[in-house]
Nucleic acid binder design. Structure first.
Length: 270
DNA sequence: TTAGGAATAT
DNA sequence: GATATTCCTA
């Protein structure tokens, strides 16, 4: 009996195609959509279907700048030549850029409303799942808890792990650290804009807020004075849009300046 | 049925 | 240690 079985197996095994014969069936773990979304150089000559964007109801947050992780994407494929025995989604790597967008989203929503699904939508990153966000959020909350208990300096208290560095790469909005006041105040119609887009931003500002700031071609007034006092990065990087991600830059501004700057651009109906 | 969140697994 | 998955709960 046993011998029958092993013979049968050997015969079956001999009839299997060789590895070479199997090669044409190679399959990438990264779909064309993901490859495009994350600027991954695909060697497969597949078509260039634009990825389905997850849209907010209003102006989009800027696309994430090109990713810089070693394998040029946030999604690590588990070795390009590995057979696609698992079609599981590749492991997500939370880069500083991605984390920043996460923090922006959470800051916008306020801790209370920051739940995975909402964060995911606000982040508007192709391929990002609710599970990805939930997992990251879980860890981020633990980090915040540690921050609250330990020193509140704004940097990792003790661990100094890679996570700590990642989390420290985007400033923790001040209101995250004490539970007193987080609310709708954080529904602010701003979004951070990469420096690359300054030009565009300035044009838009000039068009929309000509009356506000000398930076954009009109005479100074009280508002522009306030704006000039805001940290430079905010002057450069804040762009008014509705129903979009609030910038952690804003939350970062502990001073009254920030608040005044915010009032320059009253929130529309979200 | 869906989603959040803690616990657990990889 | 980082991220995914499971499991329980609302």
């Amino acid at each position: 009996m046993r011998e029958d079985e092993s013979n049968w197996f050997r015969k079956w095994e001999e009839q299997l195609p060789s590895p070479d014969e199997l090669m044409p069936l190679s399959q990438t773990l990264i779909t064309p959509h993901l490859a495009i979304a994350f600027h991954i150089n695909s060697t497969t000559g597949t078509s260039t279907i634009p990825p389905p964007q997850v849209h907010n109801s209003a102006p989009q947050p800027p696309p994430l700048p090109p990713f810089q992780s070693p394998n040029s994407g946030e999604f690590e494929s588990s070795g390009g030549d590995e057979p696609a025995r698992t079609l599981k989604r590749p492991r997500l790597v939370w880069t500083p850029q991605l984390h920043k967008r996460f923090v922006d989203a959470v800051a916008h929503l306020g801790i209370k409303n920051a739940v995975p699904k909402t964060i995911m939508h606000l982040m508007s990153v192709d391929g990002l799942t609710r599970e990805n966000v939930a997992s990251h959020l879980q860890k981020y909350r633990l980090y915040l808890k540690r921050m609250q208990q330990g020193n509140l300096s704004g940097h990792a208290s003790s661990g100094d792990t890679a996570t700590d560095h990642l989390f420290a790469s985007s400033p923790v909005p001040a209101h995250f650290l004490h539970q007193g006041r987080q609310n709708s105040e954080h529904f602010v119609p701003f979004v951070a804009v990469p420096v690359m887009q300054q030009q565009q931003y300035h044009q838009q500002m000039a068009a929309q807020y000509r009356h506000v700031s000398p930076h954009f071609g009109s005479p100074p007034n009280e508002h522009s004075f306030v704006a000039r006092q805001a940290p430079q990065q905010v002057q450069r990087m804040v762009m008014p849009v509705h129903n979009s991600v609030a910038s952690s830059y804003i939350d970062d501004l502990e001073s009254a300046n920030a608040r005044k700057v915010l009032t320059l651009f009253p929130t529309g109906n979200d």
